[in-house]
C-alpha cells in the first residue's frame, strides 16, 4: 500500500466561538486531484490553510507522507517548503519582477543559487508561455497571467502537494480558461492537488475525488461520476442545481 500524500483525520478548526471545520477526514493519494466544493463560508479555504499550517488546526491530525504534523515542534515553514499553495487573489509581490517572485522561495527558503533558481524559473515560464514576461512587474500583467505566475511561483519550490484556493474566483470570466488549462496540465503530470473551486465542470473534468463541504463538515465524498452526477445527499443535489443552473460559467 502506498503512503497517502495527505491524510486528515477528524480535523477541527474554530475561530473563537465559530466552528469553521467540524471533524473533517480526507485523504489525498499520490497522483490524485481532490476537489473541494461547497458554498462560500463552508470551510474550504480554512481547510486548505490548515493543511500547510498557515492556520493552526484546533484538533485532529494532519499527516503528510505519513509524518504527523500535529506537534508544535513541526515548524510551518518547513512544511510549506513541501506543500505549495496558490491564493484566490494571486498575492504576487508587487515590488519584485515576475522572475524575482518565482526565485524568491527557492533562493531564500531552499538556499538555491541565483543562477540555478533563475534557470529553473525561466524554464517554467517558458513551459507555460510566459517567458517574455520574466522581467515585468506584476502590475503589468493581466489577472490570468498573474495567477499563472503565482502557480509557477509555487511550482518552483518543487512541491510534493499543491493546494489551490479558488484560484479562478477573482478572474475575469475570459481569463479563467488559461489558468484552468494550466491546472489540467499539472494534473496530467501526476502532481497531487487539493483544490477548492466553484468551477463544477472543471472539477468534473480534473478531479479524481470530489468532496462536498457544508458548514465545516463533509456531506458527500466520491468520484465525480457519483457526487456530481448522482448525488446521494439532498444538500449536494441542491447545491449543484443552484450552481449548474444559475451559473453558466463552465471550466
Amino acid at each position: 500500500m502506498t503512503v497517502p500524500v495527505l491524510q486528515l483525520r477528524d480535523l477541527t478548526k474554530s475561530f473563537g466561538d465559530k466552528v469553521v471545520l467540524d471533524g473533517v477526514s480526507l485523504t489525498v493519494q499520490p497522483h490524485e486531484v481532490v476537489c473541494l466544493i461547497g458554498a462560500s463560508g463552508s470551510g474550504k479555504s480554512t481547510l486548505l490553510r490548515c493543511c500547510n499550517l498557515l492556520e493552526p488546526a484546533s484538533g485532529g491530525t494532519i499527516s503528510l507522507f505519513g509524518v504527523d504534523l500535529a506537534g508544535d515542534e513541526v515548524r510551518g515553514e518547513l512544511v510549506r517548503r513541501e506543500v505549495g499553495i496558490v491564493f484566490q487573489s494571486f498575492n504576487l509581490f508587487p515590488h519584485r519582477s515576475v522572475l524575482d517572485n518565482i526565485t524568491m522561495g527557492p533562493r531564500r527558503a531552499l538556499g538555491a543559487s541565483k543562477q540555478a533558481a533563475e534557470a529553473k524559473a525561466l524554464q517554467l515560464l517558458e513551459r507555460f508561455a510566459l517567458a517574455e514576461k520574466a522581467h515585468d512587474y506584476p502590475d503589468r500583467l493581466s489577472g490570468g497571467q498573474q495567477q499563472r505566475v503565482a502557480i509557477i511561483r509555487a511550482l518552483a519550490m518543487d512541491p510534493r502537494l499543491l493546494l489551490l484556493d479558488e484560484i479562478t474566483s477573482a478572474l475575469d470570466p475570459a481569463l479563467v480558461a488559461e489558468v484552468l488549462d494550466l491546472v489540467r496540465e499539472l494534473a496530467a503530470t501526476g502532481m497531487p492537488m487539493l483544490l477548492a473551486t466553484h468551477e463544477i465542470e472543471f472539477a468534473r473534468d480534473v478531479a479524481t475525488t470530489i468532496v462536498f463541504l457544508e458548514a465545516g463538515r463533509i456531506v458527500e465524498c466520491g468520484p465525480p461520476s457519483e457526487v456530481l452526477t448522482h448525488p446521494k445527499d439532498e444538500r449536494t443535489a441542491t447545491f449543484l442545481r443552484r450552481y449548474l443552473d444559475g451559473d453558466v460559467r463552465s471550466g
Binding site: 510549506r80 491564493f87 509581490f93 508587487p94 524568491m104 531564500r108 531552499l110 519550490m157
Partner: peptide, 25 residues
Amino acid sequence: FSQTLAGRAIGLSEFQLLRHVTIPQ
C-alpha cells in the same frame, strides 16, 4: 496581510519574510 501569507506560502521564515517581503514594501 495577503503578502505575509504569500511569503509564508513559499516557506520563508519570519525573519526572511520581514527582510524580503514586508520591509521593502
